[in-house]
């Protein structure tokens, strides 16, 4: 019973840490997916007097990923029933060319301004539509999400540090006496610390298995994923290979660091 209690305190601490870390990873993935989604849906439209090569537009800034001409055929075909063919032919001749520019990443308002200035230098571009107002709102929302996850990360770090420190004090209290007694009979450091490391590795593995089990089950039940899909965000909530490895790695690293700190900080009681 006592042994279970000893294990439980570290398992709970480690489980809390890896669980919170995984939640942080999910939130981070959501924000990245949201940003990528915004970027895919965002483009700057430029209007030129005459046809220009899309490559020349892409070459204007490294921020431009691709450029494509917007076909006017659809608009003209809609007008065909209302206008005479002669007028339509005239319209075709006088109609400017429209290009949609896609960017490498979702830009900040300052980047849009900078890009606009560059595009304005092009002699054939007569008009630029950057949808600045709606972009601004979305960009602020994105910044808000990013700030939230930074605050969340700080909170995770603070909670993790407190839990590790608390656990360290408990462990120091639990193991100091035994380590001192072993030292008095000439046990080398590795032997004195062996129990500590064994305990920490076993607890780290148990905490990891619990966390992996929880997230696998949550993924199976599709907890959260349907809500995210409803707002157009389709992300992997739990990657069975990479996330499991990360969870095991973090839990093992933390517990080994904890055990090492205790071994280093051990003072012989005599």
């Amino acid at each position: 019973m006592k042994s279970v209690k000893n294990h439980l305190s570290l398992i709970v601490a480690l489980f809390t840490i890896v669980f919170t870390m995984q939640i942080y990873i999910i939130v981070d993935r959501t924000v990245i997916a949201y940003e990528s989604d915004l970027n895919e849906n965002y483009s700057i439209v430029v209007v030129t007097k005459k046809k220009v090569g899309t490559d020349s537009l892409v070459a204007m800034s490294p921020k431009i990923k691709s450029a494509e001409e917007i076909s006017t055929k659809e608009v003209i075909s809609q007008l065909q029933s209302q206008m005479k063919q002669r007028h339509i032919d005239l319209l075709k001749l006088s109609l400017p060319h429209f290009y949609s520019l896609h960017l490498n990443h979702y830009p900040a308002p300052s980047e849009i301004k900078e890009l606009r200035k560059k595009l304005e230098r092009h002699s054939d571009i007569t008009r630029i539509e950057d949808f600045a107002q709606s972009h601004d709102t979305l960009y602020k929302l994105l910044l808000l999400f990013k700030s939230v996850i930074v605050i969340f990360a700080i909170a995770v770090f603070a909670v993790t540090s407190l839990l590790v420190l608390k656990e360290m004090r408990i462990w120091q209290f639990q193991h100091n006496e035994r380590m001192s007694i072993m030292a008095m009979f000439g046990a080398p450091v590795w032997m004195r610390s062996a129990v500590l490391f064994r305990l920490s590795i076993v607890d780290a593995i148990i905490a990891s298995v619990l966390a992996i089990g929880t997230f696998t089950y949550a993924d199976f039940l599709k907890v959260g994923s349907e809500q995210l899909q409803s707002i157009g965000i389709d992300i992997l909530l739990f990657d069975p290979v990479n996330d499991s490895l990360l969870i095991v790695g973090i839990a093992l690293s933390l517990s080994i660091i904890l055990a090492t700190l205790i071994v280093i900080g051990h003072k012989e009681e005599v």
């Binding site: 006496e177 035994r178 007694i181 000439g186």
Partner: peptide
């Protein structure tokens, strides 16, 4: 450590490992 492996110590408060 080597020296201590050849010494036997008895303490007034026993110093046994509780677990």
């Amino acid at each position: 450590n080597f020296l201590r492996r050849h010494i036997g110590i008895v303490f007034q408060d026993y110093k046994l490992v509780k677990e």
